[in-house]
């Protein structure tokens, strides 16, 4: 293919792929009364009214705060626990490591709907919370609380898998030399391998963040009140609340999208390499 024609093809494909987002932004800034019947991309009189409506009617401020809390707890937990577990799988041979690792990988094929109902009942049955007695009966447990939303996200098997793949390509000689010098296992990890693992931690952070931020089904079933809903849920409930107004809806979609977009733009490399690492180094 000639260079010019292939660049033209690429530009055309990218435009088509990005077109819906162009419209999302355009509609978000278009005044309500002009939202229909004009397909101009740049609104004649741009307005922020839609954003105000989205914030007020969809309770977005609270939802953004909730999602930020849930996502940061999940990101921190995954970066610590999943990275450590992956390290153990790769560097500290223990009994049953291989079957455990395969079982872990197999969880990727389990549909969400299989674990959804049990998780709902488990979160509802956590003892001594939400009016529950010692046996987890009687109340609503951690349902409809942020703690209940975040619990199932704390360690994602995919992240343990990525960490194990990463550390299994790291040089073992460093650990052996350090052990001969008398360094403890914890010190070997924190002073030798953790500094090497910065790209891995970035990948884990990015995947955990987008996974939690974008998730819809678990918050949908585990929360009921406006005080605990996450952004995706706030958006969907806003839509379901009746007469659809596309301007405020798109303004909400823009606000919900900006955080993942920022995380993506600052970590493009880790994103794309992480995705392919997970698949190629089997």
């Amino acid at each position: 293919m000639r260079r010019a024609s292939f660049v033209a093809a690429l530009i055309a494909m990218s435009l088509i792929v990005l077109l819906p987002f162009v419209w999302m932004v355009s509609l978000a800034f278009t005044p309500q009364e002009q939202a229909f019947g004009s397909l101009s991309v740049i609104p004649a009189q741009p307005t922020l009214d839609n954003f105000v409506t989205a914030f007020v009617d969809a309770n977005l401020l609270r939802a953004l705060a909730n999602s930020a809390i849930v996502a940061s707890v999940a990101v921190t937990a995954n970066c610590v626990i999943a990275v450590l577990a992956g390290y153990a799988f790769a560097m500290l041979p223990f009994r049953g490591a291989t079957p455990m690792f395969y079982a872990l990988v197999a969880t990727a094929a389990v549909p969400v709907s299989v674990t959804l109902i049990p998780l709902f009942l488990m979160i509802r049955g956590i003892p001594l919370t939400g009016g529950n007695d010692l046996f987890g009966a009687g109340g609503s447990g951690l349902l409809d609380t942020l703690a209940g939303v975040v619990l199932p996200y704390l360690v994602m098997p995919m992240n343990i898998f990525l960490a194990r793949q990463f550390f299994s390509t790291a040089p073992v000689e460093l650990a052996e030399a350090a052990r001969i010098d008398g360094a403890g296992e914890w010190r070997i990890f924190t002073q030798i391998y953790l500094p090497l693992a910065r790209p891995l931690v970035a990948v884990v952070a990015v995947f955990s963040f987008t996974g939690v931020w974008d998730d819809f089904l678990w918050p949908l079933v585990s929360t009921t009140s406006a005080d605990t809903q996450t952004v995706q849920l706030a958006l969907a409930r806003f839509l379901a609340s009746g007469n659809v107004q596309y301007g405020p809806l798109m303004a909400g979609a823009v606000l919900v999208t900006i955080p993942v977009l920022i995380v993506f733009l600052f970590n493009q490399r880790s994103f794309i390499s992480g995705l392919s690492d997970g698949s190629l180094k089997g």
């Binding site: 990005l18 819906p20 419209w23 819809f216 839509l239 999208t257």
Partner: peptide, 29 residues
């Protein structure tokens, strides 16, 4: 181009469905 083409993947299914809801609406794209 790699990044631009990847963007639909990272935006939540909820948000992109709202955009397409508009595109499929009576006066949509």
């Amino acid at each position: 181009f790699r990044s631009a083409l990847y963007i639909p993947h990272i935006v939540s299914l909820t948000a992109v469905s709202m955009i397409w809801l508009w595109m499929y609406s009576q006066n949509g794209l």
